[in-house]
């Protein structure tokens, strides 16, 4: 790094920067930093905002989203926080006689009691490792979170084979898209099975070459998530990169697999 020549008294002017985002992209909203005023008091305000005097201020580094009568900030980064009703993909990290601990790419692990399985087996002393052992990838639904963020999960599904991609959890809504449009695109154009956890872990299974393209596409979504017109660009990207690859409808291992 060379010595900077900027004059400190005048803030540096933002020149086109090479941060890997191409120049024709447009931002989806204004970028705001913590403490920046985003509106005046009154009306609804979303997460990551706070009131200071008569102003509403951003409580996180993110994109400002102003709708009619409501204002919120969509964070650009940050850890996943367990939330009731979220479907997450995790790795079994511990097994005890009553259930499983699952690590979910968050500051907290989630716990699944043996009673919360679909196929309940009330046989006392049943070795739970026969169902899920340490290192297995499972998708679970979080049904309860308490005040110290301990969370409890149910409805496990084991995800066998394939591969996982771990993203910044705050970009997951873009991978899914509005009305699941982006996710449908990824699935349809690649023929891969894709399971997206709200916690930023994505599981993909399909032919090796196709999987690689999907991973590329997902990383592209993560990288350009703050820009407009992403679905069209990903569609083009998939069309181009799937050329010459066979795209078949995914084969499901059992009728319970409906991803």
């Amino acid at each position: 790094m060379s010595e900077s020549k900027a004059v400190a008294n005048e803030p540096q002017v933002a020149e086109p920067v090479d941060n890997g985002v191409s120049a024709e992209l447009q931002l989806r909203g204004d970028i705001v930093v913590p403490g920046e005023s985003i509106g005046s008091k009154g009306g609804r305000r979303g997460d990551f905002t706070y009131v200071d005097g008569n102003e509403v201020k951003a409580g996180v580094f993110g994109l400002k989203e102003a709708k009619e009568n409501s204002i919120s900030v969509i964070p650009l980064a940050g850890k996943y926080m367990p939330k009731e009703g979220d479907m997450v993909v995790g790795v079994v990290s511990d097994v005890n006689r009553n259930g499983w601990l699952i690590s979910i790419n968050a500051p907290y692990e989630t716990y699944m009691n043996r009673e919360r399985r679909r196929d309940r087996d009330d046989d006392e002393g049943f070795d739970l490792r026969r169902l899920y052992k340490e290192g297995d990838i499972v998708s679970v639904k979080i049904f309860s979170v308490d005040e110290v963020k301990s969370s409890y999960a149910e409805g496990p599904r084991k995800l066998v084979g394939g591969r996982i991609v771990i993203l910044n959890a705050k970009k997951i809504p873009r991978v899914i898209g509005s009305k699941k449009s982006m996710l449908a695109l990824l699935r349809d154009k690649s023929g891969c099975r894709v399971v997206v956890g709200q916690n930023g872990i994505i599981w993909i299974d399909g032919p090796e070459k196709n999987m690689e393209v999907v991973v590329e596409a997902i990383l592209k979504i993560e990288h350009e998530s703050h820009t407009k017109g992403l679905t069209d660009r990903i569609s083009d990207f998939l069309d181009e990169n799937m050329k010459g690859l066979e795209v078949k409808a995914p084969t499901f291992r059992s009728d319970r697999d409906d991803y």
């Binding site: 803030p11 540096q12 933002a14 920067v17 941060n19 931002l27 970028i31 930093v33 650009l76």
Partner: peptide, 14 residues
């Protein structure tokens, strides 16, 4: 001001 500038620059698009 420089701090704000630096953060915004990370996600800037021309």
């Amino acid at each position: 001001e420089l701090q704000k500038e630096a953060l915004k620059k990370k996600y800037a698009v021309a």
